[in-house]
Write a protein that binds this DNA or RNA. Structure first.
Lengths: 288, 288
DNA sequence: GTGCGGCGTCCAGCATACTGAACAGGTGGC
DNA sequence: GCCACCTGTTCAGTATGCTGGACGCCGCAC
């Protein structure tokens, strides 16, 4: 339809455009570009970049970027550091507001702290988005597993316990649609599932077993167990909770305690009415 | 300066423009408007609003808002819910990236968990921004104080222990500049400081005492203790850490333990090079 | 069934946000 | 000390994103 290629033939001589300037066509290009700027700054948290650098890396005019950056700075979405820009405080505010909009997050914190065994470990809540998991909440146990994901971080669903638990809960047609355009899966460690077929086989195991496992597929020496938590609204994708432990500490008896806790957590988060205090006893039974 | 009033005399008959359509003049209006949309959606987390409602509340053309919302949706900054929009997942990602860019946040989580007494309580980290504190991190203790601030939430500095600790650390001229345009302070409870004079007096107390206190000034029945933590870069505003406890549980002996921990935390976060190595080389008082 | 009011979307014309080059300030190399 | 390079900023012209009205749709009231 549109001639997006062959447009830079004139100037693409020795320029080092890192990002593609595609941007296709938005009816509000300034907004799209602002998003690209935030993404770029978020790639290496803490980095500060000036208008020139941003313009070069995005393949966009310097002036436009400067204008957008100034607008972003006025909003507090980015911060001026000298003449450059870095991520701003309002992002924490908006991120917190988004997390507050997910009812599950609040309840997750409360319920995770009450689990007899799992409350000692790192427990996380994530939501499926395409083929990636976005981590929404984290309960820190007493164990020094500090290499867990930051809140807001995204990881491939195929290498995480949360991701496998979420994918295993999808209807076949939904799963097929998501996997259709995929050739090979991202690989983080030598044990990551590399092929779609291997993933499908694994998902069948997850369905039968009732919980998912990440056996050093994300980080060497670290294992995770995950269970699915259904969304409460039709449009909310499947969530999942996981427990992260060092492989050396994952004895079989401890593991079974943790998985019991995980199922308990999922039950309480799946039916909030029954969790705190029973108020609607028979929702599912047939009417007389 | 700007004729903000009397501008809507023509159309302000029965229209209910909630927000002011000032927007002054930005060189990238679409970005400024996008920010206003996000702010509006963040006001009541979980709310979904269609283009018409957003346009009405912002006093802006419906078409423009629709275009901007579509761009925001493509970026993942907002989510389509039916025909409306709500905050999107990418906000969690960007918020997490911002928090990751603040070195203090990481270390805060590690050090807070190691405090002998305070690790049982709710410990928070915040940064001063104007006359408000933005909460950046929270360590959850075992006590069920669930009415603590969300990460990213902003509270007036004058009613919080973190805010008073941060303000008390400012140079006189800096403090004067921030307080100059202020007539009266925001009041959250009957004990909140209402006047600038009362705040100045309180800040002197904080300086002499070495820590700040919020005695039911933010929430009834809840007290907080706060200490300042200096920023590591010249441009980073002062940070502060606080401990939140129910007033009923704030015995004097427990309180003094907690305040010792707070000073310990501040010492370790102030000088990261010494934090990991030495535990506490008699910085404040000799051991018994 | 029917009319009404509200919604989200589409479209052409205009105002304006974007562009690219020129400017001034700062820095490092030789 | 000087030049060369890169920075961020400014400015006029023009392409283009923004505007307001019209359109089709849906849900509610009557």
């Amino acid at each position: 339809m549109l001639a997006t290629d062959e447009e830079m033939t004139g100037m693409a001589e020795a320029t080092q455009v890192i990002e593609e300037p595609v941007e296709s066509e938005s009816l509000a290009p300034a907004v799209t570009r602002a998003g690209a700027i935030l993404d770029l700054l978020a790639e290496n948290p803490g980095q500060v970049a000036g208008p020139s650098e941003l313009a070069r890396r995005l393949g966009l005019p310097k002036s436009s970027i400067a204008n957008i950056c100034n607008a972003l700075a006025d909003l507090g979405l980015v911060r001026r550091i000298g003449t450059g820009f870095a991520l701003g405080r309002k992002l924490a505010e908006l991120g917190g507001a988004y997390l507050a909009s997910v009812d599950l997050v609040q309840e997750f914190y409360e319920e995770a702290a009450l689990l007899p065994a799992a409350s000692e470990e790192t427990v996380q809540l994530a939501v499926l988005d395409g083929l990636e998991m976005t981590y929404l909440a984290r309960h820190d146990g007493r164990q020094p597993v500090r290499l867990t994901s930051q809140i807001g971080r995204r990881l491939p669903a195929s290498v995480t316990a949360t991701g496998k638990a979420a994918l295993a809960s999808l209807a076949d047609e939904d799963l097929d649609a998501r996997l259709a355009p995929v050739r090979e899966l991202p690989v983080l460690t030598s044990r990551s599932l590399a092929s779609v077929d291997a993933l499908r086989t694994e998902l069948n195991v997850v369905r039968d077993r009732g919980y998912a496992m990440d056996d050093e597929e994300t980080v060497e020496g670290v294992v995770c167990f995950g269970v699915m938590i259904p969304g409460r609204r039709p449009w909310e994708g499947p969530y999942a909770a996981s427990i992260t432990v060092l492989k050396a500490r994952a004895s079989s008896e401890r593991t079974s305690l943790l998985i019991d806790d995980l199922h308990r957590l999922a039950d309480r988060l799946s039916d909030p009415l029954r969790a705190g205090q029973r108020s609607q006893p028979a929702t599912r039974s047939s009417s007389p």
